[in-house]
């Protein structure tokens, strides 16, 4: 009944095979159990759009979609994601689902250094998929876990607000 093999206890430094679907592609990686998902994405899969910032869930730069929900890829180990479907900023970009958000961020200068932008976009994408017309306050609340140290929040809220309005009117943001 156990399923637990004690020899595992002496294999902490050995890698294990993890299978994921990343951006629509099946991949397998060899990771050590203590390797975080963000490190696996950036190092093994060379998907460097996901940024490792604080590495403790405070800054939001590492957000990815895990089985459809935004999560911090620094707050989980790659082994925990075995069998999961992940979309990173690269996948969301290629699919075009956030093209209007990206264009609006660009148009309104909603970024300076851009380090926080992938996380902001993943978060904004989830917000708009749940709430069609969020108020500015709701947008700010949703972004409370995403730091922008270039202090660009106002333009970021503007951009998300504009896309929400444009989407609900059936067109793209201008």
């Amino acid at each position: 009944m156990s399923g637990f093999d004690e020899t595992l206890l002496d294999e902490a430094d050995e890698t294990v095979r993890v299978r994921l679907v990343v951006n629509g592609r099946k991949v397998a990686c060899e990771v050590s159990p203590r390797e975080t998902l963000v490190d696996c994405l950036r190092n093994a899969l060379e998907l460097t759009g996901t940024h490792a910032g604080c590495e403790m869930g405070a800054c939001g730069a590492c957000l990815v979609q895990l089985d459809g929900r935004a999560v911090h890829s620094c707050l989980m180990y790659a082994v925990q994601a075995d069998g999961a479907t992940i979309n990173t900023i690269e996948g969301l970009t290629e699919s075009g689902v956030i093209a209007d958000l990206q264009a609006e961020f660009h148009r309104r200068n909603a970024l300076q250094c851009g380090f926080c932008t992938p996380g902001m976009l993943v978060n904004a994408h989830e917000l708009l998929s749940q709430v069609a017309q969020p108020s500015r306050e709701e947008i700010r609340d949703a972004l409370s876990g995403n730091y922008c140290r270039c202090t660009g929040y106002e333009a970021i809220v503007d951009a998300i607000d504009a896309v929400a309005k444009a989407r609900s009117q059936g067109g793209g943001a201008t």
Partner: peptide
């Protein structure tokens, strides 16, 4: 800022989880 190396076990039942905990001392 990385965790110390550890082994990882994915439990399928409560009994498996409790058993693994005990056997890891």
């Amino acid at each position: 800022m990385k965790a110390r190396a550890f082994s990882y076990f994915r439990a399928a039942t409560i009994d498996q989880a409790l058993d693994a905990h005990a056997r890891a001392g």
